[in-house]
Design a protein around this nucleic acid. Sequence first.
DNA 1: TAACAATTGGGTAATTCGGGAT
DNA 2: CGTGTCCGAATTACCCAATTGT
Lengths: 191, 191
Amino acid sequence: MKDYLTPKETADALRVSPITVRVWAQKGLLKASTTAGGHRRFERSEIERFAREKGIEFFQDDGNRVLIVDDDEDHLALLCDVFRERLPECEYETARDGFEAGQKVATFKPHLVLLDLKMPGVDGFKVCRNIKQSPETERIRVIAMTGYMSDDNVRKIRYAGAELCLEKPLDLNRIVELVKSYQKPKDAMSS
Amino acid sequence: MKDYLTPKETADALRVSPITVRVWAQKGLLKASTTAGGHRRFERSEIERFAREKGIEFFQDDGNRVLIVDDDEDHLALLCDVFRERLPECEYETARDGFEAGQKVATFKPHLVLLDLKMPGVDGFKVCRNIKQSPETERIRVIAMTGYMSDDNVRKIRYAGAELCLEKPLDLNRIVELVKSYQKPKDAMSS
DNA sequence: TAACAATTGGGTAATTCGGGAT
DNA sequence: CGTGTCCGAATTACCCAATTGT
């Protein structure tokens, strides 16, 4: 996912004409960098700031992005393949440890995280808590996956903010249906 | 660390499509060497020259950013305070675990990471390796800190790509001097 | 070595951009 | 305040065979 937008993309995202975006940029309301040829580029974060300030909506959130976090390479590949085939309309990214998960959450901005809890050296609970604690990421849904479905585990992960906890081995049909049901709703009633 | 960039990497750095980079290369605006198969490779210094000549801040590399990674809240606060007082010209961010470290590396884009290796549930070696493996972050310097300065630890962290490894408790004067010495050089004479 | 996905180069056409006056 | 139009220039899309990296 690019971290910058062209003027037209920015205009589409703010539901405004490109000319208006240009004027805003000229007035300095919307900070921009420029390409070598003088065309403007806008940082995603800057547009978010501007939209928040003006109280308008930022419509760049098309597409459903799913981040799969698992330290088992094979398991990761399997999940990816299944999802890509069954839900090709989503984008997928993967992470093998906490660091990667943090990077991908920050750059890929997933709507949904499939989180394996059983990673040696990586605390899945902590990852979940981190996601849910920051205002920037708290709206990301988290589905936990664990091989040890103890009451304690379930309580802890729900407390950490996960939507639900699945037991491994996974019922692939079920999880595909779940992810489908967590896709971004088409009617975004805000009132 | 690679000293050349592919067209796509160059395009990302200059916030432009690969096609545009190709056009620039064809016009001779951007000097490039070619592989045996005819694909272009761009030197980092050449890209910097081009960016400077066109007057674009191609990475807003004004300011020196330091990320401090430590799971000990007190230690973290202490280091932060010391640095803020002794090196007020730098910006500082903190991370308490791998996830946060990933997030901060992606968003804060530090030039230097002070990395504590002794974090339960967080593998500092892995964090270092992650940073050094990705082209986006490989240029970030890493200074490791450990309470257990065994030969094995030192070897491992150097192998993971860290610049050096310090023993805790830290010599604060020394580490301040070190960070100072790792600041962005002011004279980037290219000719 | 073979296979495979992602990237690249080349050329032309289409789109988008910035600026300014309106 | 947001937008349409004109123009020259910058950027990108599209085609497809070849290259690269794993």
